[in-house]
């Protein structure tokens, strides 16, 4: 699972009001190269929750993103776009867990796939 997906996912447990962002427990992180596409990044920039991405990226061992939401003029910087690209699309959480920020419920991640299935009493 890439941080792109982590940035979209939120805890869906019944009664949880703010299930985003899920806290990452990283046991194993892998990197996979993806074609660089500035158009996609520019389109995603306004949708991304920046703080969640920067924090997640740090936990995954890549502390290169600015903590605060950067000005959109940075989208003209190649250097910035490449960092954004790497954090968003090339870092994979391979083994570990996603943890609901409100309830502490762990969603295990195996072979890169988070198990988001809820128990009966969580629906």
């Amino acid at each position: 699972m890439r941080l792109l997906t982590h940035n979209m996912l939120s805890s869906n447990i019944k009664g949880v009001i703010n299930g985003f962002p899920l806290r990452i427990e990283a046991e194993r992180v892998v990197e996979k190269q993806v074609d660089f596409n500035p158009d996609f990044l520019k389109n995603m920039f306004s949708k991304i929750d920046w703080k969640a991405l920067a924090d997640a990226s740090k936990i995954m061992g890549y502390p290169e993103l600015p903590d605060e939401l950067p000005d959109s003029s940075l989208l003209d910087s190649d250097e910035f776009l490449h960092k954004f690209h790497h954090a968003l699309l090339e870092l994979h959480l391979e083994e570990g867990a996603l943890v609901c920020p409100e309830t502490g419920r762990r969603f295990p991640v195996n072979k890169g796939i988070p198990n988001m299935l809820l128990h009966e009493d969580e629906v």
């Binding site: 890439r2 796939i113 988070p114």
Partner: peptide, 8 residues
């Protein structure tokens, strides 16, 4: 290439 989620 996509990310996969186990979910219902």
């Amino acid at each position: 290439d996509g990310d996969l989620i186990l979910g219902d």
